[in-house]
């Protein structure tokens, strides 16, 4: 009898996992750290940006695949010590130079959760996104805005990490920890791309279910 009861509980658990995200609309929101790479790091912002967040709205096609819209925001800031810059053939300026870049990517996002539907506590996930990023670049000489531009550029993202459900048999709410790479085709003189390695933590919450 005891064995039969155990089997029934296991069947219920597995059946819950079996429809773990199918038809579920989820909202993910998290804090993001972004570390610039390449020319972006060398010429614009060489420190890790702690001012960012990322999230997505996704719909579970089945247990392994969800599709949705990913979005984010990251603010990069770099202040360079006073130096002399040639701003024209007959003009030099001595100034503290500061760069600020704000990137707001919005992407179509594909997420793969290979073990969803199986009774494991920690769920790995992988995701990829493609879309555009709305970027604002400001360069200051002293307190004066010297360059001010807004661009819309192609953006790509690849991400992987783990999901830790809050309830053992319910993955609609979970803690997320991930590491990703983001590419934004910035196309500016001193950096073609805004390449960053991102580390993020977030929460997944359900918005609606079938």
């Amino acid at each position: 009898m005891k064995k039969l009861l155990s089997c029934m509980v296991l069947i219920i658990v597995i059946s819950n996992y079996a429809k773990a995200q199918t038809g579920l609309l989820k909202f993910t929101m998290g804090y993001n750290l972004a570390s610039p790479m390449g020319n972006f790091k060398t010429n614009y912002a060489n420190g890790i940006s702690p001012r960012g967040f990322e999230g997505d709205l996704s719909y579970g096609i089945n247990n392994q695949i969800s599709l949705g819209i990913g979005f984010g925001f990251q603010d990069f800031y770099q202040k360079f010590p006073r130096a002399i810059y040639g701003i024209a053939s007959n003009e030099n300026v001595s100034a503290v130079l500061t760069n600020t870049i704000q990137a707001v990517p919005i992407m179509a996002k594909f997420t793969y959760t290979p073990l969803l539907g199986k009774p494991v506590t920690i769920q790995p996930y992988f995701s990829a996104g493609a879309g555009v990023s709305f970027n604002s670049f400001n360069q200051y000489l002293g307190e004066f805005s010297w360059v001010n531009s807004s661009t819309t550029n192609l953006a790509f993202n690849a991400d992987g990490g783990i999901l830790i459900p809050f309830k053992k048999y319910n993955v609609s709410s979970a803690f997320q920890l991930g590491v990703g790479y983001q590419y934004i085709n910035f196309n500016q003189a001193l950096a073609n791309n805004l390449n960053t390695i991102n580390i993020h933590v977030g929460l997944i919450l359900p918005l609606r279910s079938n």
């Binding site: 001012r51 960012g52 967040f53 925001f73 603010d75 800031y77 202040k79 006073r82 701003i87 024209a88 007959n90 003009e91 030099n92 300026v93 001595s94 100034a95 503290v96 500061t98 600020t100 704000q102 400001n138 200051y140 000489l141 002293g142 307190e143 004066f144």
Partner: peptide, 26 residues
Amino acid sequence: LLQGCTKNITSSYSYPDTRIYIAQRD
């Protein structure tokens, strides 16, 4: 977050940091 995440550039500026010195010549 969108409202508060952008760093204000002048917050880390001393008075000397705000100044620019432009030298122009013939």
